[in-house]
Write a protein that binds this DNA or RNA. Sequence first.
RNA 1: GGGCACGUGGCGUAACUUGGAUAGCGCAUCGGCUUGCGGAGCCGAGGGUUGCGGGUUCAAAUCCCGCCGUGCCCGCCA
Length: 627
Amino acid sequence: MNIKSTAKDEFARLIRISIEKTFPDIAISEKDLARTISYSKGTDWDISSSIALRMAKQAKSQPSAIAESIAKSADNSVLIYNITQLNGYINAKINEKELSRLVIGAVLEQREKYGSSDIGAKKRVLVEFPSINPNKPLHVGHLRNPLLSDAVCNILSFCSYTVERIDYIDDLGLQMAEILWGTKNIPWDQKGRKYDQFLGEEYVEINRHLKNPGVEDSIKSLLKRMELHGSPEYAATREIASQCVRAQYETLFAYNIYHDAMIWESDIMHINLLDTAMELLKKRNIARLETEGKYKGCLVVLKKGIAEGDDSAKVLIRSTGAATYIAKDIAFHMWKIGLIQADFKFSKFIKQPNGKYVMSSADSGESIEFGNVDTAITVVGSAQNMQQAILRDVIREIDPNSVNKLYHLSYGEISLAEGKISGRAGTWLGGSKNYTADDLLREVKAKALDIVKSSNRAGMEISQDEIAGKVTLAAIKFDFLRVEPSRKLVFDWERALDFNSNSGPYCMYMYARASRILEKSGAGFTGSMPQLTADDYSKMTRGCEFELIKRISECRETVEKACAEYKPSMIAEYVLDISLLFSKFYQSTDVLKSGDSRNLRLYIVMAARQIIYNMLCLLGIQTVERM
RNA sequence: GGGCACGUGGCGUAACUUGGAUAGCGCAUCGGCUUGCGGAGCCGAGGGUUGCGGGUUCAAAUCCCGCCGUGCCCGCCA
């Protein structure tokens, strides 16, 4: 499918030919030309390019003069005509009938694939998320990570990348040692609570004891014994962490978020991935064992070229012999991009509602090819920007080319109006409602159910509960995803419960309206009507129909941009725009009573409905035919 | 103190990477539409010196420099 069927491509082609004739000495890349082209609104023309303004310097001439000669010698085509110049801009009209024919034809032909791209064909990507400590429930502060990651994975897949969704379980950290201490020193009873909720609440309680005499020392000795593969402490920790991750995954399943595999920090140590990595760093003189001074007995990363401006070194192996978090993270990332090999074994951990198992690294099991990918994306909050920068610096020292395979998808962290959300301090425990991901779901669903019940539609094939569930996820996901990742987010209930326009439910509603119109028309959803003739397209008018068609034609370029920049927010913006345009379109034209234009308009409804469906899918949002 | 982000009408945001015509959208406010192909809607109005100051340019929300403000990070925690 080489025909891109957009007016922009055609306009670019005509301009290019004209420039080659009029300014043969000036070379302009396809990309540069494409960037100057945009649709126009509320003007006498439909599309324009500012290429002449860019050429002015090189051509040593006035922009308007350049634009004039390009416009004059440019040929018209079926799609683009009336090419003129104004203030240095090259403007043209679009044959709206022809554009509609091309765009609608492409949508109906490609269906759920419309907007997809092959830019990632034969490339493998690993996305690590959400890597939440296995000692607490997911709270709203955690939630941005999996929602963002899931959408990024969906977009990558839509662009033909092969995607591995990997979770990293930190079962060896201080937090787990503290939990282990708690099991032995404070009353320990789940009392019917969900396991992650139970651990989280106990963890808050444990933190009240940390300053008592002797507690710190016993936690430290636990930490050491935990790392010994096969010790009772190791087994106990892994069991607790496993139960907690299962509970956390239940939450993720409720959000329709799934993984391919999980890698345990303890396994990174136990199959010697860590040792291999550290040996390499020592051999390459990137890390060094300090024999005196502040870091005596530690393996540290040398200062040279690393964490510039910071005169303290970064410890990889403590003087006690225990590895730090970043050391294991470095080893893990080296494995991800194939700088070192590891013989991970995988066993089935839990069956997901999508039918697939999450495979867990384990003592024994099957060898599965994960890792050694072309791009490894790590989704981590902006608080860890410096950690990630150091990690990249180390990898760059090993191999300057490999570092480009790593991408840190950093996002602004979520806070509450009253401040940071802390698992340790227990600020996720609210008053009447907690700030856990489970509670959020419950609260939003209660409201969704109210609204669904009040709409009282007859003849529904799916239950009100199911509809409310989908509306709930649409509201939450859209709310988290519509903001650009780097921006920080302040969570508040009022906004989470707002289903008005600019929301996921609004887009869902437009989809349902489109579905209903098609249903009533008797045409169905899949284009079973006779093909439109040229005569049908001649019914096209230049109003909101044309605006909608133009925007639909921008689908693939939007998807590709969102993919290249890892910004699902662009998809959210786009689907919202399509929904708004569709809304205006069906309010101003009575589709079913359209007479001559009825067929064409039904096809426009079909196309818009398909776009909304495809784009919401990328955001992890499901649609319903009625709501 | 050093490093990294961010700053756009009352609030939330888009456009910034790649400088281009009148800074787009939602909420809130005000006015209108309404027995419909489903009102979770549509139409319209008011509200902006794009934090401040300078620079580059024919052209700056966008690029550069300096301030100011906010957040995060700077541990033998993870």
